[in-house]
Design a protein around this nucleic acid. Structure first.
Lengths: 254, 254
DNA sequence: CGCCGACTTGACATTAATCAAATGTAGTGG
DNA sequence: CCACTACATTTGATTAATGTCAAGTCGGCG
């Protein structure tokens, strides 16, 4: 249930994901991440500016709201949530991030982070100094183009979240969340219909603009109807067709 | 109540905003728009790639969801809304745009527009061919940097909308909307406390995840409490302090 | 074994939606 | 200028969806 990485032995790392001197070229995520579309030479130039791989323990902040912005972060291992804090001190989660995704793009505008980012499990990120990245943009047009693509995707992702929060009922929101989460795992080579949630029910609810009780009830209802198998944070989608229809708003209960 | 531009005489234009051959340098919005921070020379190079000024009549689409993306649009005159259409054919408005703002950045990722954009009044935009802009990026680092700032701001704007939709009650949402709208007019040299709404109540409600009836009731309530003067679409904020406190969630009714 | 935090479930309350008029406003044509 | 029409908006009554509060239950860990 917990992340596999707990206490890191000083001994030589075992898996490729844990080696200290990994490079984009050997990273299984380079099809999703910043170096997408680069040739070998360009990729190694990008590699050369990436400072270090940094471990982030479960529950610790990669950065906090208002921290000065100097780096983007590419998730190599693990999951994160990003969130804002309102005047009352409560958090609103604005997204969950997976390996291969970029964190920190919202900070470019003001030079300060606009939201906080916390690891949902023991994680590892590549630090990308933004000033150095800007130098590379001038030299590698492909890189710049893909960076624009990523920022734009971030915008559409958030517009989709607005659609969800602004116009969907609770049931539909959760269906969308489950279908999307599965699709994102599928893009990473995992099963779309069988995955482990990395966040608490409360965090799902927070993200979807619902309470923990609503999430719990909805999961139970989905289970009762045979759409899902749920065991703790383990999700199996038994009827993807109907779940997708619910997410699209085509098929809502009663 | 309507836009001042109705039928365009073929005679020489009267105001600077209506001249055919305007340039960024003479545009009152260049402090907000894409050329921000450029020198005279660079600005005229940007100018040279801007195809033409295009009029967009009230109620017509600048682009629609799924249209191929070739240009960004800078609003010169008028107001727009951007929106998505869900499976049921209803729209969800994702933003209202003002002069000086850039439209179309969400389309860079896929090469197709992800939402539609419709003029709320007779409007005018500068067309910016994106392929040509990319060439300029390589030559004018200042321009690239500011473009990144604008995209990033778009991300934070949408994150703020998520905060609003995900965690605020109806009253707070409308207070935030009014305060933000005023602030945006203030950034353009107009009054923050005295402005005209360019959209229908229904569109405000749609954007805020509420119904038209809720908006109407809330406006009446604000009026009754002496926070606002409302006459059709004309808004005067009589008590900005309290309205801001409501927007921050500090001061909610009873 | 027992504690603690996460989750589930039930009863009830509340917010905002829905439904239904009534009223106001802008534009049109006589 | 006025009557007429088509919308847009306001207001009231009622309902439905989701939140809140309050027990419980489950599962992992010391």
């Amino acid at each position: 249930m917990m992340s596999s990485i707990q206490i890191q032995p000083v001994a030589p790392a075992q898996t490729s994901a844990m080696q200290e001197h990994n490079h984009c070229a050997t990273c299984s995520l380079h099809k999703l991440c910043l170096p997408t579309g680069l040739g070998d030479d360009e990729m190694s130039r990008l590699d050369s500016i990436i400072g270090r791989r940094r471990r982030v323990q479960r529950g610790t902040n990669l950065y906090r709201t208002n921290d000065p912005f100097t780096k983007l972060y590419a998730i190599r291992v693990g999951h994160f949530k990003t969130f804002q804090i309102n005047a009352g001190g409560e958090q609103q989660i604005t997204g969950f991030q997976m390996p291969g995704e970029l964190l920190g793009m919202d900070a470019i505008g003001t030079g300060r982070h606009h939201c906080g980012a916390m690891a949902l499990e023991d994680s590892e990120v590549c630090e990308i100094p933004f000033a150095k990245l800007e130098v590379l943009f001038a030299e590698i047009p492909q890189l710049l183009r893909h960076f624009h693509r990523l920022m734009s995707q971030e915008i559409t992702r958030e517009q989709n979240a607005m659609l969800l929060l602004g116009s969907m009922c609770a049931e539909q929101r959760l269906a969308v969340f489950l279908v999307n989460t599965g699709a994102r795992y599928a893009a990473r080579g995992y099963s779309a219909n069988n995955f482990q949630l990395r966040m608490m029910r409360e965090e799902i609810g927070n993200y979807l603009g619902l309470t923990i009780e609503s999430i719990s009830r909805l999961l139970s209802r989905f289970k009762k109807r045979g759409l899902l198998k749920v065991s703790n944070r383990e999700i199996e989608i038994l009827n993807p067709m109907i779940l997708r229809a619910m997410a699209a708003g085509t098929e809502l209960s009663r």
